[in-house]
Structure formats: structure tokens, C-alpha cells
Design a protein around this nucleic acid. Sequence first.
RNA 1: UCCCCGGUAGCUCAACGGCAGAGCAUUCGGCUGUUAACCGAAGGGUUGCUAGUUCGAAUCUAGCCCGGGGAGCCA
Length: 441
Amino acid sequence: MSQETPGAAPVVAIEHADQHAGRTVVLRGWLYNLRESGKLLFPIFRDGTGVMQGVVSQKDYPDAFAALKGLTQESSVIVTGKVQAEPRAPGGYEIHISGIEVVQRVPESDPYPIQLKEHGVDFLLDRRHLWIRTPRQAAILRIRAEAVRAAHNFMDGQGYTLTEAPIFTPAACEGTTTLFEVNYIDDQKAYLTQSGQLYVEATAMALGKVYTFGPTFRAEKSKTRRHLTEFWMLEPEAAYAHLDDMTALGEGLVSAMVQSVVRNRARELQTLGRDVAKLAKIEPPFPRISYDEAVQALQNAGNPVKWGDDFGGDEETLLSKQFDKPVIIHRYPAAMKAFYMATDPVRPDLSLSFDMIAPEGFGEIIGGGERQASYETLLARIREAGLPEEAFQWYLDLRRYGSVPHAGFGLGLERTVAWICGTEHIREVIPFPRMLYRVYP
RNA sequence: UCCCCGGUAGCUCAACGGCAGAGCAUUCGGCUGUUAACCGAAGGGUUGCUAGUUCGAAUCUAGCCCGGGGAGCCA
């Protein structure tokens, strides 16, 4: 941050204010809270990077005192003062205010609605545009950004090229789930993508190792803490790759995201009260168990699941609690996976698929596997699934012209970040969550 | 779509068949080291909507609306 006037106090971010102890600085931000004690005021300022307590006495700085006295929460302010170490202040540092400029005063007649107390979810979600100002929410969004940055760095380092899949699509990628339909030009119908999967297979055949990162949309009427109607997914795909290549890539990617947050966002994790020791352990290798073994383990634990059943939230939580790292479950029955999934040559009733389940009950964060490379088999699967064949001609072209074994997966960003942050609900880890019955603000 | 829970002051909640309450927020007053500061005072209500039961309904019943959690489905 550059200063405007030579010799004037520098504008500093609160996260770096401790490096300016003993010097006069300028903070630009908002009044987070104000405590009064007679002729002494204790404002707490926030600037998006953190919060810092200030102190001003009427005797020493009557003008600053008068300007701050009775100032309303979230009024925007530019504060000048000397930073000093102060054990009584939260964070250990305090600014001794000598001057203050109120940029905009929040009127008393219409006070800032979000108080420093518990609020209901409905109230907060209706005011999400303000809720994100609270230190906890800001910390979560910084961690999200760090996780995304780490993911791009890791994928780049593995030789994967970022490409993009379209958001408007002509038909279902998987056919089963509900799509958002939109009016395209001249009364054509189009749909919002539910996965970049099919397109990223095409770009993998063009560029070798690729990944997409973008929003995806699901119109399913899911009402759970793990679901959004709009969420972000990172989908790698590599030509000549097999199932084991993708489980290794997935554990490397997840580890890189977690470790980067642990390293660079320690302050934010502390704000959230997250147990960092649990995150520090997240390094390859992750445990791998087959679907067969998972069913056995569940049955041994008293779960009534039968071979051929899909795992619900209860089963996922039960399995994940047996490990302190994400667990990779591979080779699900072919019947329960999508039409494009390759089958195991050793056990044709199994698919070369895998899911990664986060620890502590945060659910599935990755789903993927090896794709069906044979034209004839893929066509048969499309017909069996009752999908519109003509819409998949371009996809079948990938098997007509130089088909190769290939594999990939999709990582749900919000579920991954929710786990890293330890938030109860996925809605807190995206700036403006889109959920069933909630598209405002 | 189904199951469960909730809706009372701006917010968080209490009152559970008998006068509508508290804390926070707002306003006024006090306090030189506060930690969601504290102390004193004031203003603030169509108890989600509609119908019903009852001498009397925030409270009981039915329907509707809105929201939350879960199931299914998925990341």
C-alpha cells in the first residue's frame, strides 16, 4: 500500500500492523465495535485483513474523542495513530488514536443490522452481503481463495493445462440429475452445465493433461448442509491415465490445498477455531479401500448395507471416522455409476471408479475414475441409459478418432473448503450461496 | 417429492388456556483500561396468514405461507 504524501504516516493493513509497533500509521476501514468507559473510548476497527482495538482519551485528543464518541457500528473511518504492543488488547497490539476521519456515518435511525451476537440463519442469509463482513466469514473466504490458488499451483506443477468447459450445454452430461433449463436464442433450449466432464475429455484428447475449474449447477431439490444449487468444481482429465493415476493426483491435490492453507492462512484458521493439528496430518498417502472392503467394514460395524447399495451420508461418515485422512473408496459396482465409466477387466461387475471421502463427516469431496474408451461399449451404454443418442455424437467422436484410455475426477470446492474450515454448513464457504428456495441477495 | 422441527419487539429468545416479558440494538444519563464492557432510565408488539374450539387463544385444532434439518440424488 503506497502512501500519498512523503513523510505522512503510511497506510497499513491490520494484518501487518504488528510490524509497525512504535510508529504512527493510518488504518482505513470500518468501526466494528465501540466500548466506552467514561472519558476513554475503545473502538475496534476492521479493514478486511483483521481487527484491531484502538484507544483514545478525551483529555489527550478531544477532537478525535468527539468524532468517535457515539459513532455507530460499521461507520467507515480513516484512523491515524501510533501502534503499540498492549497485552490487554485482543491481538496484542493497539492503536493510540490521534486523528479520525469519518467517511460515512451509519445513521442511528437505521443501525447496522448484524450485531455482535448470535443470529438466526435466515436473518443472516437474507443479509449475506453484510454478513461477509464479520471476521469469521471473511476468514472463510480468504481460506477459500488460498485453497483455489493452491489447487491451480498444484495442477500447473503436475503439467495440467487449465481449459474451460461451457456453462450452456445442449443436453445432460449424465442424464440422470435435474438440469436448469434456460431459453437460448430463438426459442432454443439450453441447460446450465452440471459437469464439465464430457468436454474436458475432449480437451484432454487435444492437450493431454487438462483441468477445468468453474461453476456447475444442479436443480436437484436437495436440502442438506452439503448441497448448493450452484457450486464450483475442479475437474482434471488426462489421456493415457488410469484409475491409480487419478487417485494419486487426487490425494496430491487435496494435500496441497490443505497444506497451503495451514501454511499461509494460520491466522484465519485460528479465527475459526479450527484444530490445525488435524489438518497438518493431511499428506499422501491416503488410505485406499475397495468397495467390497468398505461394505465388509460397514457390516462389521453393524450397518445394514448390502453389496450393491450406494453409500449414503451415514455410511460415508461411518467409514471416514475410521481414518484421520480422507479415504479413497475404489471399484464401485458398475451398475451404480455413470454410463461413461470404464469397467474393471478383472471383475466386469465393477467400475474403475473412486470417491474420496473427507474426514470428520464432511462427505464426498471427489468422484471420478477411468472412462469407457471403446466406441461400441459406450454407444451401448448410452442406449441402455435411454439417453438422446444424437446429442452425444460429438462425444462418441472421441472414441472414433484415436480413442485412448483416459481418466479424471471432479473435486467439489465448497465441500473441500467446508472440511478445511470445519464449518457446519457448506453455505458459509461461498460468498453468495445459491440454494433450494434461496437466490437472494 | 417425502419425514421431522420452527415462525412472539430491529435481533436472540421466554411466556405453553387467564394483564405480552427479558437481554442485546436504538435514545438519554453515568463511568480513565474496556474485552459481545458495565450501571441507571426511556421508547419499541396485527405473537407468519386464514378459519375454528373456548367465557377467554401467542398457547389447542385444521388449512395455507415462509424458513431450517434430514432422506432420496450427488460434488
